[in-house]
């Protein structure tokens, strides 16, 4: 089966420092992959290379849906296919919730205002906040904001969603509502790469777990493979530390 996302020998230098080291990763259509690992291991860098928020070294190659991810005319197609959800939501504070979700379809997808509004309201309904459509992000709770951010990321009908620690900035009582939305999406067959520290959630929702350390993919496999039968000492140490907390 063809991979929807393919990373071949991908490295990333910040000056002399290597944030990613020769990463190879294939994600099939409909697959849900969770990336775990200690802080500073390169998880964010990895997913940010996939939609080119970070430029990776020339030696490697990333393809998304058959398109090589590099600066240029094709980048538009890549970004149209890849939605992203950030740790800090990054909603546009000067726009209402509805306008946040409508913006990309109108500007990039160039669909009519009515069609964009209809789509946005449907998406907001899916994440359970259509009744807040005319409020501004500052008037919403963190959990609500993150659900809006997910709706916004879905507005371009992307094949792929990237999540970078979507619940790390949330108060504990709001984590659940966001994870539920992501779980629902996983069930609908959206391809996802999720960077997360929520181990229970990762185990439950993922087809595959990728463990990273020091810029490398150390080990990957099914949730059972990793959580119950990890072979690499670094993975075991990490899991032990996390579970102790």
């Amino acid at each position: 089966m063809d991979s929807l996302i393919q990373l071949k020998n991908v490295s990333k230098h910040y000056g002399k420092f290597m944030a990613l080291r020769y990463v190879n990763l294939d994600v099939a259509e409909g697959e849900v992959v969770s990336v775990i690992g200690p802080s500073g291991s390169g998880k964010s860098t990895l997913i940010r290379c996939i939609n080119l928020l970070e430029h990776y070294d020339d030696s490697g190659k990333i393809t998304v849906n058959g398109t090589v991810v590099r600066k240029g005319a094709d980048l538009k197609n890549v970004r149209a296919n890849v939605g992203m959800v950030f740790q800090n939501f990054n909603l546009f504070p000067h726009m209402t919730i509805l306008e946040n979700v409508k913006l990309a379809p109108m500007r990039v997808g160039e669909i009519s205002t009515e069609a964009a509004t209809k789509r946005a309201l449907r998406l907001l309904d899916n994440v359970g906040i259509s009744d807040q459509a005319d409020k501004y992000p500052g008037q919403l709770s963190g959990g609500q904001q993150q659900r809006v951010a997910i709706a916004r990321a879905l507005a371009m009908k992307p094949k792929i969603l990237l999540f970078d620690e979507p619940t790390s900035a949330l108060d504990p009582e709001m984590v659940g509502e966001v994870l539920n939305v992501i779980r629902k999406l996983a069930g609908q067959g959206v391809t996802m790469i999720i960077v997360t520290h929520e181990m229970g959630f990762a185990r439950q929702v993922s087809d595959r777990i990728v463990f990273m350390d020091a810029g490398q993919v150390v080990e990957s496999g099914t949730p059972a493979d990793i959580f119950d039968g990890a072979k690499e000492p670094r993975t075991l140490t990490f899991l032990k530390n996390v579970l102790e907390q």
């Binding site: 928020l53 970004r79 939605g83 546009f92 990309a104 990039v108 990321a153």
Partner: peptide, 25 residues
């Protein structure tokens, strides 16, 4: 920085990013 990144991730062109997101703020 997150405002720029969110705009880019949504696929907004530079002009739209400036016009709709950055400059109004």
């Amino acid at each position: 920085k997150g405002q720029f990144e969110a705009s880019q991730a949504l696929g907004l062109s530079f002009v739209h990013m400036m016009k709709d997101v950055i400059l109004p703020q």
